[in-house]
């Protein structure tokens, strides 16, 4: 006698690892990871503001750390993460409006693939401006 539905193992809710990896899914995960990164990075902003409110020595110390090659590397990464999360948020507004459903999934996949390139491009532009104005 065949198993009845009552005794057969019930299907479990599928999780991340059973899905084919797709760009929109990748960007959804990255949006969350960048958000968590930005969360902890706000400490850098608080330290910078506190240093600026303190003595010239304390400000110089923080400026030296932030201006070192490692500091600049972290700040560059933080800028990229910030821009990525920001334009990702704008993308989420578009998706919340429901217009992605009308455009179709090819369009949302294209938008997801474009994300890292757009965010990297804007980040590099910001840093060119920052470094040029610093040199001038």
């Amino acid at each position: 006698m065949s198993k009845t539905t009552a005794t057969r193992a019930r299907p479990l809710s599928p999780h991340l690892q059973v899905y084919t990896f797709i760009p929109t899914m990748m960007m959804s995960i990255i949006h969350r990871i960048t958000g968590v990164g930005l969360y902890f990075g706000t400490v850098l902003v608080a330290i910078w503001l506190l240093a600026a409110s303190g003595s010239p020595e304390s400000f110089a110390r923080v400026q030296a750390i932030y201006g070192s090659w490692f500091g600049l590397f972290v700040l560059f990464g933080y800028t990229w993460v910030l821009i990525h999360h920001l334009i990702g948020g704008v993308r989420h507004f578009v998706m919340d409006s429901g217009s992605d459903l009308a455009l179709g999934k090819e369009q949302s996949t294209k938008a997801a693939i474009a994300m890292p390139f757009i965010s990297a491009g804007i980040t590099i532009l910001i840093w060119i401006v920052a470094l040029l104005s610093r040199g001038a």
């Binding site: 706000t42 400490v43 902003v45 608080a46 503001l49 506190l50 600026a52 409110s53």
Partner: peptide, 13 residues
């Protein structure tokens, strides 16, 4: 903590 420290620094300045 982050908010209080940052706002305090800004108001001090």
């Amino acid at each position: 903590a982050v908010g209080a420290a940052s706002v305090f620094a800004l108001l001090k300045i």
